[in-house]
């Protein structure tokens, strides 16, 4: 049984805990970087999460996998870091930055897709999500998204917060949140398709 691997007993040994934490560290870092968009802040939160996980080992009840539990700790640390970013004024005011225009360029005046922007098939979703190459494209497309939009998008789609929670954190109306997510998805979709299909065609 898989669960028996994650019983608290096996993690009694500090050496074993350390090994498991070191093993997931790169993935935690990649996740934190996507969300915080700042490599040194991401390093800090991952470090804090790993220390917390190591020290609070007794809190791990074995109900979920060990790595899932560590991930939960990281998400809380990321949320704290986001709040700190906001307090420091690092969140720019909501200016449009040509985002609306970029979205509009995908559509004709009638509201139909422009021919060059028409979504094409990405192939099997399972294959896509398990492809290393897809995640490289995903990474670079996330970096290309404007900060404001990326922040809301990752809170929703990576951290799994509800739009209501996001509104509270970001201090915006829910309606505004839906507009931002809609634009973010359209921009990210276009970028992913370009990168992903370019690779597949070559």
């Amino acid at each position: 049984m898989v669960e028996s691997l994650d019983s608290a007993r096996d993690l009694d040994s500090p050496g074993e805990r350390q090994r498991r934490l070191e093993a997931i560290r790169p993935r935690l870092l990649a996740f934190a970087r996507l969300q915080l968009r700042d490599a040194s802040e991401a390093d800090d939160v991952v470090q804090e999460a790993l220390i917390t996980a190591f020290e609070k080992n007794a809190d791990f009840a074995g109900r979920s996998g060990y790595e899932t539990w560590v991930f939960g700790i990281l998400k809380n640390k990321i949320l704290d870091a986001l709040r700190a970013q906001k307090r420091r004024g690092k969140w720019q005011p909501w200016d449009d930055d040509g985002v609306e225009a970029a979205v509009e360029r995908q559509f004709q005046a009638t509201g139909r897709w422009q021919n060059i922007a028409r979504p094409r098939s990405w192939g099997d979703p399972e294959d896509t999500l398990t492809s290393e190459r897809f995640w490289q494209v995903f990474d670079s497309c996330m970096i290309a998204l404007p900060d404001n939009i990326a922040r809301i998008f990752t809170m929703r789609e990576l951290m799994g917060l509800s739009t209501r929670q996001i509104c509270e954190e970001a201090g915006i109306k829910e309606n505004n949140c839906w507009v931002i997510l809609h634009r973010g998805r359209l921009l990210l979709r276009a970028c992913l398709e370009k990168g992903w299909l370019a690779e597949a065609d070559s």
């Binding site: 993935r27 996740f31 996507l34 999500l129 398990t130 995640w135 789609e157 990576l158 998805r185 990210l188």
Partner: peptide, 8 residues
């Protein structure tokens, strides 16, 4: 894209 977070 909605599933991407869970996949990661």
């Amino acid at each position: 894209m909605h599933e991407a977070g869970r996949a990661l």
